[in-house]
Nucleic acid binder design. Structure first.
Lengths: 198, 198, 198, 198
DNA sequence: TCCTAAGCGAGACGGTACGTCTTGTCTTCCA
DNA sequence: TGGAAGACAAGACGTACCGTCTCGCTTAGGA
């Protein structure tokens, strides 16, 4: 029987500080574009010393990816159960994503809108593209060999979606979530239908 | 009769300096991501004093915008004559853009690829979206009132195109320009066809 | 009947920690100048937590003073018995000090040499100056009133001695302890002799 | 006839800034010990941006040695002409140095007094020791070989002088410059006389 | 052909932000 | 209960850019 590895219980303050910093960054991103925000701003907003920031994160971008991971976890947690059968398996992500965006409109606008950090959009893009690739029967991980057509299709689908989403979030247009979804499906489904039948 | 307003002929050196700076930026963007390039880097590469930079451009972004304008002019100049009738008027831009990208592969990768400046992609996006909107029979300029559906369609089409283009440029995939075009058309045309017929 | 006043027996570990810290500082002073040594360095060398340092000492200088006191105690303990009668009572300290310095050459070089802490030299200076003042018949404690000439003499004598000592320690000169003493006495005794006779 | 070497005239602002910084350091050293003064303090006092400081000096110590050089130049410039013949050539420096210290009492106290920077005292010591060595007939530069006795003598003389000077500057004693000089000479001359005659 | 206005390089300058380091206080956990 | 570990705020450090500016030299263009 092996002795349990002595791992000291982490200090509760640590998570408090880290969370305060994550929250502060997001709060500031509602007000200013990401690149204009300084580490000092974040620390101040989080009521935390600037040096404390560097204890927990290497730099601003490190904090950002940490936040992205939280976003991904949040999405994964509640994105698993699409009640209705989607028009096409590759479009299963559409309805949930639009709903999440609607619920957290301000947050999503801050993150993927004009002033947002490119990294967030890119990561979201990558994440969704993987889902689509899998749904199209391809492998989840990108192969080094000649890119399967699914990869290209996934780029098309997700690129279209991200653009529409961003446009919808940035204009305070009277378009409803349902209309957005319908528009997207009407444009992309026919093309997909043809491809899948093959 | 009034005397002609005395306008001295501009110094030829001015344009030489400005062009050297534009070229230097583009050259550097082949090597480093846009944000990592400093004004000093650009000036040095252009064999120009750093203060001279500020004589001609307000800041790095100003130079970038200036470069984008040149790109747009270049595109407009040679994009006017698509020899073949496109599958759909809204997709008229596809063939020419892909051809330009192929010809200037390195340039396009530097501009709209991962390390490129977001502004370039956004401007290109805006430009193409306008073409699509017009082709769809909408107004060229975006109205403040309830967004016409054409706007949404344009976002979808252009978003899909830009994503595919970026993907194509970044991987050194063996996919040919023709294949890229075919893939895109196959995915987007069906949806458009339905919409237009209305 | 009242309970005996609770005087907790001092934890033996306390003295162990303090001594480890004192030793660590001295060890480090053999390698680096005093000001370049950080509290963290000392704690690490002493195998002690940094916070433990602050339990025992207010700061680095406090530890230093503590070490100086030990040095003074050490000197006093073995400095009391000069076997030979000195050339002049005010120079009684010379022979013992030189001998101590020779025995503990490395330590003395670290403490009063170039990289040493000024405080050590100053404290040693003060200590010796007091001995000299007393030997000259003046009061041990410095009076606020017009400084007695003995004070000035003491400064001269001790200043000369410290400079010679530091010089001797820093060069690895082939000068022997006896030669150093002789040199010093030959220079200072005549002046003192005149003064004392008064 | 050769062309004059193209040497661009130095920007007048540079010297203004550097001097302002030198002055600021000295001013602050009248108020606080050297080590407690931060670069930011100096820059602020000099009405100069902190970054400007780093344009001209590597760090605080660099500014200090620059100041020391100025002090040395100042001393050399006016120290050349001792009107009266000194009691002994090796003591020629005494009278002038005491006079300078008296004229610039506050400055000298700040520089070589308790809160002053060790470097200043050490440099002054080195400078005077060299004068004494030369006066004693030795070589100006320290030989690597067995240290000449003059070196030891010089250390004694200068060590004694520096200690007395520091003591005099720090107490606001009523001792006059003449008395200080007399005290010093009375103590050191006899010892020297013997040595020289040899 | 000379003169004059400008373009230009060099770089000083005040700022802001960065990421690192050290200090001294404080909290939390463990033995 | 006291010591080790280490979180924390504060603030200095030296570096990198920024955008503004001043200074002379050079040079193109107009007289």
């Amino acid at each position: 029987m092996t002795a349990a590895p002595r791992r000291p219980r982490p200090d509760r303050r640590v998570e408090r500080s880290k969370q305060a910093l994550r929250d502060a960054l997001i709060a500031l991103m509602h007000e200013h574009p990401y690149e204009r925000i300084s580490v000092a701003d974040i620390a101040e907003r989080a009521n935390v010393g600037r040096s404390t920031f560097y204890v927990h994160f290497a730099d601003k971008d490190d904090l950002l990816v940490d936040g992205i991971d939280q976003l991904k976890a949040w999405l994964r947690e509640r994105g698993d159960a699409p009640e209705v059968t989607p028009a096409h398996p590759a479009l299963a992500f559409v309805r949930p994503m639009i709903e999440h965006a609607e619920q957290q409109r301000a947050l999503f606008r801050a993150l993927v809108g004009r002033g947002g950090a490119v990294q967030v959009s890119e990561e979201l893009h990558r994440m969704l593209a993987e889902l689509v690739r899998v749904a199209l029967g391809g492998k989840a991980t990108v192969a080094k060999r000649r890119p399967a057509p699914e990869e290209a299709i996934a780029e098309v689908v997700v690129g279209a979606f991200m653009a529409l989403l961003r446009w919808w979030l940035e204009r305070d247009s009277a378009m409803t979530a349902a209309e957005v979804e319908a528009t997207f499906t009407r444009q992309l489904l026919p093309g997909l239908a043809g491809w899948t039948r093959r």
